[in-house]
């Protein structure tokens, strides 16, 4: 479906508003900003032909986030097959410009299983309540709570947070 000028302008505005934020969210899932940028781009490419319909949704950003999260999960599944092959080059050899504050926590997050990672990101970063996370991920609320509990336990061991007060 070809976009009208008005649709294209609206989509461009939506892109400007949502793209950076979504890259930030997906980066936490993938552990790589470059990978997140690719995934978000793919999500927007899929949005273009559906924009006339999705733009009328109550939450177009919710649709986009769901697509991006599924793409990230799919890529993660594929990537685990390459896990041993594609180990990151040690940062002592190749400094990562993205390194900095929160790296320990980010690493701890990428050590979590993808379902727990998704739950943690949706809950802590996207501020979604448990019932909405359950709907988004297609699982029971109890499952979300147990994934969050697992994530909380693992992330609280991160040096970034160790020593801080936790509930």
């Amino acid at each position: 479906m070809r976009l009208t000028e008005a649709d294209e302008a609206a989509l461009r505005e939506f892109y400007s508003a949502q793209q950076p934020r979504l890259v930030g969210v997906v980066s936490l899932l993938t552990g790589s900003r470059a990978e997140a940028e690719d995934i978000v781009q793919e999500a927007f490419v899929r949005l273009v032909p559906r924009w006339a319909k999705v733009s009328r949704y109550e939450s177009p950003e919710g649709w986009l986030r769901l697509v991006a999260m599924r793409l990230a999960a799919n890529r993660h599944r594929n990537a685990t097959r390459f896990a041993s092959l594609l180990r990151r080059v040690p940062t002592s050899d190749v400094p990562d410009p993205a390194d900095g504050q929160g790296l320990d926590l980010e690493r701890a997050l990428t050590q979590l299983p993808m379902p727990a990672r998704q739950a943690a990101v949706l809950y802590y970063v996207c501020d979604l309540p448990v019932p909405e996370i359950a709907t988004t991920l297609g699982v029971a609320e109890g499952t979300v709570k147990s994934r969050l509990s697992r994530a909380r336990a693992a992330l609280s061991q991160s040096p970034t947070l160790r020593g801080a007060d936790h509930e």
């Binding site: 950076p20 890259v23 930030g24 936490l28 997140a36 993205a98 929160g102 980010e106």
Partner: peptide, 11 residues
């Protein structure tokens, strides 16, 4: 962390 990635994102 998400905000930092968002600020540095390109597209």
């Amino acid at each position: 962390i998400a905000d930092r990635h968002a600020q540095q994102s390109g597209g």
